[in-house]
Simulated assay, not measured.
Amino acid sequence: MKNSRIAIALAALALVAVSGVALARTSDRRQAIDIESGSAVYSTDDSRPTVLAGGVTITQGTLRITSSTAEITMRNGEAVRAVLRGGPVRMSQQLDDGTPMNSVSSTADYDMQADVVVLAGNVSVQQSRGSLNGERVTYNMRSGQVASGGAAGGGRVKMRILPKNSGTP
């Protein structure tokens, strides 16, 4: 029972990688999830969140997530929220077309009930066609909408979009 609860919670963490990328490798979701951490603390019921610490690494197919800690909140035996913090949080994954996506942030917060991922704190999302930088990036997986904002003190959102390779010099 304990192992299945942790596996469900950690599977939810892997979904965090969808943030910022609507076309993440779909076959990754059908792969096994491997998790490593220095420690894991969890309860046999939903009274306290599962906390992974001491360097967390999650891999599933081409997806790789690293952070200092991960906290998974369960309700009625289902993971409802996953929060990764520090180190910083790094995610990398291949898109369905084979190109890489990488992101770095201070935190990644995935609300599984709303299907919303929020990357916060010096966010950088890099893809082959461009980049997005800001203090906060919110990705609604149901609607596909991405919103980005600068720091509360007036920071700026920065994007760079590269031209499509037209095949001409």
Results as ranks from 00 to 15, higher is better:
Val18Tyr: 10
Asp34Ser: 12
Ser148Gly: 15
Tyr42Ser: 06
Leu63Met: 12
Ala11Gln: 15
Thr50Gly: 06
Arg64Ile: 00
Ala22Gln: 11
Ile65Gly: 03
Gly167Asp: 08
Thr168Phe: 14
Gly149Asn: 08
Gly98Lys: 13
Gly98His: 13
Gly149Glu: 11
Ser128Pro: 04
Val104Thr: 13
Pro169Phe: 11
Gly149Thr: 07
Met1Glu: 12
Gln126Pro: 01
Thr66Ser: 14
Ser106Asn: 12
Val41Glu: 14
Met112Phe: 00
Met74Asn: 01
Pro88Met: 14
Gly55Pro: 10
Gln113Pro: 00
Glu36Leu: 07
Lys158Tyr: 07
Leu84Gly: 11
Leu84Pro: 03
Ile58Leu: 14
Tyr42Asp: 06
Met159Gln: 10
Val125His: 01
Thr44Tyr: 05
Arg29Cys: 02
Val137Asp: 04
Ser19Pro: 02
Gly144Gln: 05
Thr26His: 06
Gln94Val: 02
Ala82Leu: 09
Ala17Ile: 05
Gly154Val: 06
Glu78Gln: 11
Leu23Glu: 15
Arg160Lys: 11
Val51Trp: 06
Arg90Gly: 03
Arg129Lys: 07
Ala14Asp: 10
Gln93Leu: 05
Ser19Thr: 04
Met74Cys: 01
Gly55Phe: 05
Arg48Thr: 04
Thr99Arg: 06
Met159Glu: 07
Arg25His: 10
Thr59Trp: 00
Ala120Gly: 10
Ser47His: 10
Gly155Phe: 03
Leu15Asn: 15
Glu71Pro: 00
Met112Cys: 01
Ser19Glu: 02
Ser37Gln: 07
Leu13Gln: 07
Gln127Phe: 00
Gly55Arg: 06
Leu15Ile: 01
Val104Tyr: 06
Val117Ile: 09
Gly98Thr: 10
Lys2Met: 11
Gly55Met: 07
Lys2Ser: 12
Ala147Asp: 13
Arg85Thr: 00
Ile35Arg: 03
Leu119Asn: 10
Ser4Thr: 13
Ala22Glu: 14
Ile8Asn: 07
Glu71Lys: 07
Ala9Asn: 01
Arg81Met: 08
Asp111Glu: 09
Asn122Ala: 11
Gly54Met: 09
Ser105Cys: 04
Gly155Leu: 05
Leu162Gln: 15
